[in-house]
Design a protein around this nucleic acid. Structure first.
Lengths: 385, 385
DNA sequence: ATTGGCACTCACTCGTCCCGAGTGCCAGGA
DNA sequence: TCCTGGCACTCGGGACGAGTGAGTGCCAAT
């Protein structure tokens, strides 16, 4: 038994730029569907996965996603004109089931795609569905009104949740991939200094530092030298650059400099570097029918920062969509959910991830299109800032 | 028909300082319960609400809260030693029902408290349950580890959610009730200035301002004068103080000063002033049985900042508990939930609200105790900062 | 005012039956 | 070799009905 393409993998965007493309809209019964994504892939010579079987799998996924009910052979030939009889479809279904692409909830029921089935669908049987131009301009208008980074992020998360009608997750631009724009030192009292770090992604972090008393002049000097040393450099380079920074200062100021540098490094590596925001949790309830007892575990998972971060995954290139389906998420409680994520960033460089979480039975082409488009627009907004 | 105390009202904390007090632990069947809150209130002379009836109402609330099932007359006399027969209780129940304190889901079922019943319970039949000393020290340890304001807030929300096992809501210290600690101006380029506002509650807000080009010297001068003018003053006083600030500057710098002042005022009145954080949403699922179809509307309400703010309510004095029960929340979707809130602040001055949201059928004494204790500790932490 | 007795109500559970969608298999036909 | 129509079989789920028991309201007696 040969199983091509069964491992989880990253899917590059293959977006059709034609606006108004409706290839992935809800299947309309009886209406011939032309222009489907090509099944003819040169290596598809697996006898167990011939053209029609793939077509059947795709039809099953589409119908199941739209009706949310197990789909049977008869309904299938009615809604899609496959040109063969239900009995033939049944044979194909039996084969697909044996290979683990679909599954029967109980003996006298229709078929439901498995995680593996969705995987194949996403990898080979669908294209990313581009947004309509109306949607695009709505995104642009909405994100364009943001006043600062916090606002960009919060608008993005609301936007994503709204257009996908699912749970949206957005990660703050990672500190370590940004560069220092400016470091500010503010003497609150002579022995209490506030350190403010501003990055080129617009992020601002602050920290109070207790030191031995230092003069205003020393603080100003420190500020100037520190900026000269690290402004414009990547945060990841900062530790190396400030290594022997304290040596330039007279002995009596060393303790103050040392504690400032320590605070600076702390800010950089701090866990809040990986801050994550989510929205659209209420959309979960629309799936109550699907996972009636699973909503609890899902909400729990969403409250765990660590889980969210793992779901967003490793930083990938910008505009690179990643799809994790069901068990691929790696969490027991999320076995009925899928996650679609994308990197976003400025200057074609990824600074963080964003994405969407929904039931495995989701509209993958549409969701992927939305995530991809939003990621691209957010990157563009950051470029302007 | 006389209905004393039926309006929604604010309840001051009447906390019994004895640690380890277990008066409000789950009622144990058959065990005599001593030291109940006094029912003997001098004005309770209403013939329709004599001592025993109130006792019955309290027993109903307690049993319903712990069993989550309608409670009948027989079960009541068994679990609480009321010293009378079920038939007598039935008469009292009929009277309580006529007055709207309890309600019968259907003819042959037990009784369930109404919102009005819970109201009476909260106002007159229960005391705030103090936390155990173990819980207190756990709170102290957990909140004490916070590094900055963001951290305090996020820890608080997690803590509240965890100890009440409900949904926690915490409002950021209101800008308008804080004072300016420092204003920092950072010239990013000659025509782009970053304005950073630091308050005495530790909050930091920043905003980029585009201006006509100004010199470094001008910026430094501006910074010094601005701080001299408003540092140490309440944010609410700032608009008045900066009113004719621009007049001190030479004509050519006016546009820059004006746009800076405009940005400053904007930051102060901005809606993010009312930022709200929530946590423990997963706890909602523990009540699925209660409001099976209500969880959707509740999640929706929780996503609306405006709704959350209204639920937290007007700023009240610190350590003043407010309880809103069911319809008193003012939202259709929250008719099965109650909200317990308290002000918190520094120096005995309230800077914001925090609270908890759960089913109307919640453990009011325990929840009120937890909210009150956490509010007090947060205030203490802010004082130290 | 309280109580025991009694008839009544009604949600809930369980067993039975029936229906229909959907399947797998098989033999015949292109 | 592949497709197809026919057919028997499975089984979830809805409808129906009887039985059960918790709980009530009322009333007459104490």
């Amino acid at each position: 038994m040969i199983r091509p393409l069964q491992e989880r993998e990253v899917v590059g965007v293959r977006e059709d730029p034609r606006p108004g493309d409706t290839r992935f809209s809800e299947p309309r019964p009886g209406e011939p569907r032309l222009g489907e994504p090509r099944l003819a892939d040169s290596r598809v010579e697996d006898p167990r996965l011939d053209r029609r079987r793939l077509e059947v799998l795709r039809a099953i996924v589409q119908d199941y996603v739209s009706t949310q009910e197990p789909v049977g052979s008869k309904a299938l030939v009615e809604r899609h004109n496959l040109g063969v009889s239900p009995a033939t479809i049944r044979n194909d279904m039996a084969a697909l089931e044996e290979d683990g692409y679909i599954h029967q909830p109980h003996t006298s029921a229709g078929r439901v795609p498995t995680d593996k089935g969705y995987r194949l669908f996403v990898d080979r049987l669908s294209n990313v569905k581009p947004l309509s131009s109306a949607e695009r301009s709505a995104i642009h208008a909405f994100l364009g009104g943001a006043v600062d980074l916090d606002d960009v992020i919060s608008r993005t998360v609301r936007l994503l949740a709204q257009i996908t009608r699912q749970v949206a997750v957005v990660q703050y631009p990672s500190l370590s991939r940004s560069a220092v724009r400016h470091v500010e030192l503010v003497a609150i009292t002579s022995s209490r200094i506030m350190l403010v770090l501003i990055t080129d992604t617009g992020r601002v972090e602050q920290r109070f530092v207790e030191t031995i008393p230092v003069s205003e002049v020393t603080v100003a000097d420190l500020r100037a030298r520190l900026n000269a040393l690290i402004a414009g450099h990547r945060l990841s380079d900062v530790p190396g650059r400030v290594d022997d920074f304290a040596d330039q200062f007279p002995h009596e100021d060393r303790p103050a400099v040392d504690s400032l540098i320590a605070a600076l490094l702390e800010v950089i590596v701090e866990q809040r570097e990986e801050r994550v925001v989510l929205g659209g949790t209420a959309n979960l309830t629309r799936f109550r029918q699907d996972f009636p007892d699973t909503i609890g575990p899902v909400l729990e998972a969403l409250e765990e920062q660590m889980v969210l971060l793992k779901l967003l995954g490793e930083t990938t290139g910008p505009s690179t969509l990643t799809v994790r389906i069901g068990h691929e998420t790696g969490y027991e409680g999320l076995s009925a959910t899928s996650v679609v994520t994308s990197g976003y960033g400025r200057d074609g460089d990824t600074v963080a991830q964003l994405g969407v979480l929904g039931p495995t039975r989701m509209d993958y082409p549409g969701t992927m299109g939305a995530v991809s488009a939003v990621a691209r627009y957010v990157g563009r907004i950051l470029d302007q800032a």
